[in-house]
Computed example of a mutant assay.
Amino acid sequence: MIQMRRARTVLGAAGLLAVIGGAAACGSGGERVAGQVAAESSACARIHGQLAAGQAVDVGAAQQCDQVEFGALENERQAARAAGEKPAMRNSATCEAVNARAARGDATLDFNLAFHCRQRERFANTVNAQNGVGEPNKVTSLCLGVRARKARGEAVDPFVRSFCDKEEAAAGGAGTGGQGGQAGAGQTAAPTPAASAPAAPSASPAPPSTPPASNGAGAGSVVCAGSTVTLSGESGAPAASSNTLPIGSRVKVTNLDNGKSTTVRVTSVSGSCTLLNNAAFEQVREPGKFLIRRARIERVA
């Protein structure tokens, strides 16, 4: 146990996960595994430093660090739960650094990375609130950044404003409507072109061929027409969570931008029409994207 704690101190969360997984790799392979773990930990530490300094980072590498760190944190949380404790779900060190910049309204932060960590944070907030270890309807860092940008009189992209408005409304806030001025001041500035935030263009409307929404309808019906789909951050076999479809139902999600689709079972409740877990999202995603802006969501038999 003492050796494990020392390893965690030296290698960090990313290193700990790899050490646990490679504990049996003693003898000839042990040095190689230790070297690989140290290299991964060092790379993630550099990314943390770059994020803290307001610099651009390799988005793919940052997301990989988050995956490893999140896995280690989740292992710890599940072990604590098995011991009868009620631990909170935490964000990875990488997403903590991303969220710190997002909360300041840092316009130089890569949107896909900020949105990825927003989804992690949102899911953790929901789980913690349900378990009584966190406040309900907590506004995410990305939407706190929208507040900050409004306070500075900066433009807010309509797509970002659309989901932050919902967060603010759920939290009892004044919302993020409008393009500038103080939040809640009742001022309405002139519209700003969507091109002001190229990393986060306005959500594309569903194609005309998409049938009307039919929430709670029978098999074969489209539900939540026009909704976007992203990932919940949950691991395991392909599955979905929903605030519209009951647990146990099956849902087919089609990414209309690449034609890929996946059919999975709803296994939990979320704050959106449909969230896909990591494995399901991988089946339909476009490389480097963490949001399906044009999706068809169908309930199937």
Rank of each mutant, 00 (worst) to 15 (best):
269 V>K: 00
49 G>I: 15
35 G>L: 04
271 G>D: 03
50 Q>M: 09
91 N>D: 06
118 R>M: 14
299 R>T: 03
72 A>C: 04
198 P>E: 10
198 P>L: 09
235 S>G: 13
238 P>G: 03
1 M>W: 15
121 E>P: 04
221 S>L: 09
134 G>A: 01
269 V>P: 00
238 P>D: 04
7 A>L: 14
93 A>H: 07
241 S>K: 00
42 S>T: 09
265 R>Q: 11
84 G>W: 03
51 L>M: 09
149 R>T: 00
219 A>G: 15
21 G>V: 08
148 A>N: 07
106 D>V: 07
62 A>E: 02
259 G>M: 13
251 V>K: 04
209 S>D: 12
257 D>P: 05
6 R>C: 05
290 F>I: 07
262 T>A: 10
263 T>N: 02
175 G>D: 12
173 G>Q: 04
30 G>W: 14
37 V>I: 14
272 S>L: 08
23 A>L: 15
205 P>M: 11
161 R>W: 00
294 R>Y: 03
180 G>A: 13
9 T>A: 15
91 N>R: 04
3 Q>D: 13
86 K>M: 08
131 N>I: 01
8 R>C: 10
223 V>L: 13
65 C>T: 05
56 A>P: 02
139 V>W: 00
107 A>F: 05
80 A>R: 15
100 A>G: 07
27 G>K: 08
33 V>D: 03
66 D>N: 15
47 I>T: 08
191 P>H: 06
270 S>V: 01
232 S>C: 07
116 H>W: 14
23 A>C: 14
285 R>N: 09
197 A>P: 01
257 D>M: 07
246 P>W: 05
67 Q>P: 04
236 G>D: 01
57 V>G: 00
263 T>W: 02
131 N>R: 08
156 V>F: 00
169 A>Y: 05
117 C>G: 06
261 S>P: 01
147 R>A: 11
152 R>E: 09
233 G>T: 03
239 A>R: 04
165 D>A: 13
3 Q>M: 15
73 L>T: 02
127 V>H: 08
24 A>Y: 08
280 A>P: 06
98 V>W: 01
157 D>H: 00
233 G>Y: 03
278 N>P: 05
248 G>C: 03
278 N>V: 14
279 A>Q: 11
285 R>K: 15
53 A>H: 14
184 G>H: 13
300 V>T: 14
223 V>D: 05
50 Q>V: 09
208 P>S: 11
151 A>C: 12
262 T>S: 06
77 R>K: 10
46 R>E: 12
276 L>K: 00
82 A>C: 12
119 Q>V: 11
49 G>V: 15
252 K>Q: 05
232 S>W: 02
74 E>M: 08
23 A>F: 15
80 A>F: 10
204 S>D: 10
82 A>M: 13
209 S>C: 09
157 D>S: 02
78 Q>E: 10
159 F>Y: 07
157 D>R: 00
72 A>K: 00
154 E>Q: 10
150 K>F: 11
205 P>C: 07
206 A>K: 03
219 A>Y: 13
191 P>K: 06
101 R>Y: 10
291 L>M: 12
219 A>M: 12
9 T>K: 15
167 E>S: 03
108 T>S: 12
160 V>H: 00
61 A>H: 07
121 E>K: 04
209 S>N: 14
4 M>D: 13
103 A>G: 09
129 A>Y: 01
278 N>L: 11
221 S>W: 07
207 P>H: 07
225 A>M: 11
262 T>W: 04
200 A>D: 01
243 N>M: 05
249 S>A: 12
